[in-house]
Amino acid sequence: MTIIGLGNDLCNIERIQNSLDRFGARFINRVFTDIEIARSEKRELTRAASYAKRFAAKEACAKALGTGFRAGVFLKDIGVVNLPSGKPTLALTGGAAARLAAITPPGMTAEIHLTLTDDHPWAQAIVLITARPA
C-alpha cells in the first residue's frame, strides 16, 4: 500500500448554520450532492452538523488530491456516501475523479479512506488516499 494523499479539515458548524439560514436551498444545491442532501435533511436535530461534516470532507479531499478547489475540482465533484456497513467514504466525479486518476500510480488502484466527527461547534474530516496493486 502506498499513500498518495492526505487531507484534513475543521469546519465551524455555526458557520454552516448561518449559510443554511441565509442562503437555504441555493447554498445546499450548489455545494452538496443529492445523496448528501437526503442524508442531512433526515437529521432534524443535527442537520447543520451533518452538512458541516460533509463540507469538511470535501475540503479535506481537495487537499488530499493536492489541488484544492481549482484545476477543475469543484465542491459537487466530491460526495460523501456510505457503504452498506454504514462506513463513510467518498464518491468522486468530474475533475476530482480525473485528478484521482492522474495521481494514482500506473498498475495501482486508489482507495479513499474517510473519517468524520463533530463536537459542537466543530466538525472535522480526515481523508487518506492510498493505492494498492491492481
Rank of each mutant, 00 (worst) to 15 (best):
N29S: 13
R30A: 11
R30T: 12
V31R: 03
F32T: 00
F32D: 00
D34I: 14
D34R: 13
D34A: 14
E36F: 08
E36M: 07
I37S: 02
A38K: 15
A38Y: 14
R39T: 15
E41S: 10
E41P: 12
E41D: 13
E41F: 08
K42E: 10
K42D: 07
E44N: 15
L45C: 14
T46I: 12
R47V: 11
R47T: 11
A48M: 06
S50W: 05
S50T: 11
Y51C: 03
A52M: 01
K53T: 15
R54T: 03
K58H: 07
K58N: 10
K58Q: 05
E59M: 00
E59Q: 09
C61S: 09
A62E: 07
A64Y: 03
L65Y: 02
L65H: 01
G66Y: 04
G66M: 06
F69M: 02
R70K: 13
R70P: 12
R70G: 10
A71K: 13
A71P: 13
V73I: 06
L75D: 10
L75S: 13
D77I: 04
D77G: 03
D77K: 02
D77T: 05
G79L: 00
V81G: 04
N82K: 11
N82D: 12
L83S: 11
L83A: 11
P84R: 05
P84W: 10
S85G: 04
S85V: 04
G86W: 03
P88A: 03
P88H: 01
T89D: 02
L90P: 05
L92G: 04
T93L: 09
G94P: 10
G94T: 08
A96Y: 00
A96W: 00
A97R: 09
A98K: 14
A98L: 12
A98V: 12
R99Q: 09
R99F: 04
L100D: 02
A101T: 11
A102W: 06
T104Q: 06
P105E: 09
G107Y: 01
G107Q: 06
T109N: 15
A110S: 10
